[in-house]
């Protein structure tokens, strides 16, 4: 009984804290994406003439994230019945956007005009163990080639 009460209180607290962090992160992402809207990032590379390039260099952005205890509980529930695990979708979406932004920020800080040949990678760096109440950690990696064009 006591550990059940503790569980309820704990999950509720984690829920509110986790949702607050998530909301703040989304707000920050939107603001920073707005600021970097001018900088294109594309998957291919045919967006510039080779003759116009002043400099090209590799840029990347990376972030390691983990889900919270509440998300793990929710994911467990949904896994039982099947369906979309929105708890992890939101986590992965915002971490991927964060990695992309960090890459763009790295490129912008050195005066890039665009990032080409962008790739995304997700890797699990820790399996996680629900019985030990951890969700596992993921690394989101985004990398590409930053291009600086010659002054016209």
């Amino acid at each position: 009984m006591a550990d059940f009460l503790f569980f309820v209180v704990f999950v509720t607290a984690v829920f509110f804290i986790g949702q607050h962090i998530q909301k703040k992160h989304f707000a920050s992402l939107e603001a920073r994406e707005q600021a970097l809207l001018y900088l294109p990032a594309v998957v291919g590379r045919k967006v510039f003439n080779d003759d116009d390039v002043e400099r090209a260099w590799l840029v990347h952005g990376t972030v390691v994230v983990s889900g919270d205890y509440f998300k793990m509980m929710l994911a467990g529930l949904i896994k039982f019945f099947g369906g979309r695990i929105s708890a992890y979708e939101s986590l992965l979406d915002r971490s991927r956007r964060e990695a992309l932004l960090r890459m763009k920020e790295a490129a912008a800080s050195e005066g890039a005009h665009m990032v080409v040949n962008v790739r995304f990678e997700t890797s699990k760096i820790d399996g996680g163990n629900p019985s030990q109440q951890t969700t596992g950690m993921f690394e989101m990696l985004t990398y590409g080639t930053a291009i600086r064009l010659k002054a016209q």
């Binding site: 294109p40 045919k46 967006v47 099947g82 992890y88 979708e89 992965l92 962008v118």
Partner: peptide, 29 residues
Amino acid sequence: IETVPGRTIVEHYGIVQGSTVRAKHVGVD
């Protein structure tokens, strides 16, 4: 591929991405 063969690209808008996390119910597992 880089292009749509036979068509000309006039504008590009950067990266678009779609993702989802899904699971099957316990029976399938």
